[in-house]
Design a protein around this nucleic acid. Sequence first.
RNA 1: GCGGGCGUAGCGUAGUGGUUAACGCGUCUGGUUGUGGCCCAGAAGAUCGCGGGUUCGAACCCCGCCGCUCGCCCCA
Length: 425
Amino acid sequence: MTTRFQAPRGTQDVLPELQPYWQAVNDAIRVVTRLHGFRRIDTPAFEYAGVFEKGSGETTDIVEKEMYAFEDRGGEKLALTPEGTPAICRAYLEHGMASWPQPVRLYTTHHMFRYDRPQKGRYRQHTQFDCEIFGSTEAMVDAEVIALLWRLYGMLGITGISVRLGSLDDITPRREYIERLKDYYRPHLERLSEDSQRRFERNPLRLLDSKDERDLSFKENAPKLIEQLSPGAQAHHEVVLAALESTEIPVTIDPLLVRGLDYYNRTVFEIVPDADARAQGTIGGGGRYDGLMEILGGPPTPGMGFGSGIERMILEMQRCGVVFDAASAADVYIVNKAEGASAAVFALASRLRSAGIASIVGESAKSMKAQMRGANASSARFAVIIGEDELAGGNGMIKDLSGGGDQENVDLARIPLVIAGKLRG
RNA sequence: GCGGGCGUAGCGUAGUGGUUAACGCGUCUGGUUGUGGCCCAGAAGAUCGCGGGUUCGAACCCCGCCGCUCGCCCCA
């Protein structure tokens, strides 16, 4: 052994013992999306880099410093999807979904790739559940999407979380607000933290998100966007809030909620554990993006959606004490101890499986004791022992492993039927 | 990208400069002629994350790298 490989930084193997969580999440996603009339779409693992450069915004961290971008052998600039929404928008345009009945409701689960420093709940490859609704400007749609995600978390047993809701207004009034915000901060620039000085140039909205002590007093007195929304955005916001409050979803208005993507307007939201204020505590978030399709070269098409990290959902499930019983590996474990009986044993296993009975065959080279130990470890309900005596009589010994170990000799041909009956009983 | 903590068999740990690195769980094999779970016995399994340095001697001290983790930036 000279070289030992390990999984690349920020990636992880999902071992069998964790699979029940993934299974539960995927099952719940299928149910909840059906309840809301969403249909599944799958997009490629990589896209032309331009999809994200234009779609997510060239100055966003996701594109600027986290994107896995590369040239293929033909010189095309590609990128592993760092973010789902632009890719789904691209598919919407490419397949003429504007001619489908509107609005179009789509969901997917997709690997996302971002070159970032890993932490608990933050990986270089993670899996995101994405929902998008295209073609509706209605505020009710925003509330519905949030409610869908809320319902999913409920189904998964995730508790102690709440919705943070904000509004980023429409693009033009937001630009005017940003100018007012910069006017407010400009005289104090020298006294701000280094991070905030950078934010002033790159992403002024983030100034309100600072946790640095030096910035706090300025933050408090800064003009808040949510308090001076344009009339249309204000009305929209009120409808979303009222709809959510009508369904007992705990909502707090977060005037400082800023999302990392450029394309959002009006509604933005995050769902966060109450006990965990860190950024990587956020399990899901999204918002409205009425201008994104045009940025990608399509006709004006409103959109609303979210992304939610499945790895983070699972961490929350574990925090909430959600556990699964260890699944048994099979219903039947065949103890194979007859000289030259491999064909007969193989055929028996095949007939059991055809009858829908999960079966594992022991290794004939191992002793009967060892194979019985294997049967026990597999937590199979029955062992079927095929030894010299049984084979000679055309029988198999069915042993019930659940209790004291009752066993009976049964004609080989009848074994699947008998076991099916016992499993039902 | 910046700062802190950690890294010993598959897993959880003990060992903090001096003989063949210890224990529990797990794995494998046995406990007489063909039988599990409990028990008992035995075995396999670790170049002490990797590389370099200090030292007569390093798992233990120093440096670099890799990985995990916590905080920041930011995101799911």
